[in-house]
Nucleic acid binder design. Sequence first.
DNA 1: CTGAAAGCGCTTACAG
DNA 2: CTGAAAGCGCTTACAG
Lengths: 364, 364
Amino acid sequence: MKSVPSHEPAKPTLSEVSERAGVGRSSAARVLGGYGSVSARTRERVLAAAAELGYETNELARSMNTGVTRTIGVILADLSNPFFAGVLRGIADATRRAGYGTIVISSDEDEGLEADAVRLLTAKQVDGIIVAPAGGRDASASALRSAAERGIPVVQIDRTLRGLDADAVVLDNRDAAREATDYLLAAGHRRIALAWGPALPAGADADLAALTSAALTSEITSTGERFLGYVDAFADAGVPLRPELVMTGAQNIAGVEEFLARTLTDGDVTAIIATEQDSVIAALSAARDHGRRIPQDLSLVAFDDSPWAEVHDPPITTVRQPLHALGERAAGRLLSRLEGGGDRVIVSHLASEFIDRRSVRRLR
Amino acid sequence: MKSVPSHEPAKPTLSEVSERAGVGRSSAARVLGGYGSVSARTRERVLAAAAELGYETNELARSMNTGVTRTIGVILADLSNPFFAGVLRGIADATRRAGYGTIVISSDEDEGLEADAVRLLTAKQVDGIIVAPAGGRDASASALRSAAERGIPVVQIDRTLRGLDADAVVLDNRDAAREATDYLLAAGHRRIALAWGPALPAGADADLAALTSAALTSEITSTGERFLGYVDAFADAGVPLRPELVMTGAQNIAGVEEFLARTLTDGDVTAIIATEQDSVIAALSAARDHGRRIPQDLSLVAFDDSPWAEVHDPPITTVRQPLHALGERAAGRLLSRLEGGGDRVIVSHLASEFIDRRSVRRLR
DNA sequence: CTGAAAGCGCTTACAG
DNA sequence: CTGAAAGCGCTTACAG
């Protein structure tokens, strides 16, 4: 192994190029920056000098003048979650095509981390921000809000804060959940567990009114929307909904397992709608632990499709979300804002795709 | 919906703060920049003025002077692949803790895109780059190389280019594959398919020598290392290896299915080592299509653990890779380089964990 | 078309 | 401790 050289060749600057080309700095700047007009002869000499020196524009310096960094910031809950990873890929592909850089940060659904992230991004002068706002019923997102007020375009993704006057790109979660629920209802299921539902304030009764109000808090969450779609389907079918089959506990694997341990035994549940990957994993695990075979003893519809769902035994019926398109759409929206496109706040919805496989049993 | 304000409040600058505080610019700079020394009285006035104005340091301008952006670039094959998503999360967590920004780009294993990415990053003056170098047997990575030569610290992750004189952080793929193969051999398996193996030059014979030489090309890949570990295990056990059971075709789901369709029939394979998530999915799918039950008719060891592997029926025996740690380690290495730590090129290896579940049958 | 000058918002010596 | 000046590497008017 060789050791690293202790001092490296300095990067050539515009001045050095102009000097070598024997022209003024402005002329060199014009050809290298691609603006203004120059004679063919000047252009040639500058280009030659730049090539010899291996000149590369210092975007930092350019940004200082133009006030534009061609860099956007992205704040997502968890970059390692397949959902957000898919979304990020879509965002990054779109920004790269446009020649933008993308700075990413995980917020872990924590408002404090989100605020730190916003400050880091604005300090770095990003041109705009794409964010999946951290939730919580008192989500203030003050850092986000103040960034937006200072004129930094913000586009929300996957969820939206009601008070935040910014574009949003979301999935049609309500429709998707309604479709999944309709499907189970049509197959004859009545005792359909929803894992998971809206988070309830501590001590609140888990009745329909409380759940609905929780779903309609300060932010529009995918969880809340899915609950609403579930309610829609029951209402449309004229089937009474059982609030105790809506999970209100801890939104994680342990929470789902605890919820299912109870409802599988007492609630006599025949079907589960699992709305997140963690919930699906917990449902599969609980079914096994309680000796329920899928689909003979228990039906399952899972949100967030995965290649594993198709090769599972049995193949799992899922709601496939267009993650890449979601990211691309959000980036597209932000980019057009940056390019000065429109000033109306737009919320755009993307439809999910219902993939019927074999984890649902028809009861009639 | 309200319309967005057409012109926003300009961000306050250092000059405005100093003016409001009634002190010189340098003094304001000293307190806000946290360097030099100032009187308590000056500090107070500056801080008060900054707070009133909502001043926030413009990191861009700071970077112009210091030559340091506190931003690193990350180039990974595919941000939506669970493997790289996990790695990215580790990187981003570590850089955030250090107060750095992280710019990400997917290269899709394409050298051209990788070169574009390197140029974008260096133009933006990142302090360093973490990259999973795009492969190919003639991988030149010239853009990467020239960046490194210009003094931009580069750390390679997951694989390493032999000619690139840069730090690397990789998984112990050879050991992991040897362990998986040992395990199957000890369970009495002899006809063990490896999906996938090293990519062979078109038309080359798939004998042991050709495979080994392919595994030892210009870059050290996880694929090549895993093949070597597989060879080690056979050699240690004194069992002859059958080259035709090493997949050399297209490294994707279709390629694996095609390979298994052949070897499951002709090769009388009793076990499969699937070295990537796509390979695992393809193996599971092929087993089902060919009516082989796991583990009764066919054993399986899968690389890249997933929550789905545990709830699969049967639970799949896997090699779990420390993705988050891999990312953190790489970021840590880069950060210490940036902080001037050491100039010896270091390659660090992370061990995987063998998770014994129930997809392997003992034959004796 | 072309060059000298000013300026982006900071930091870094340098006198006082 | 404190302020005026120069400079980071570009772009943007502005004369010639």
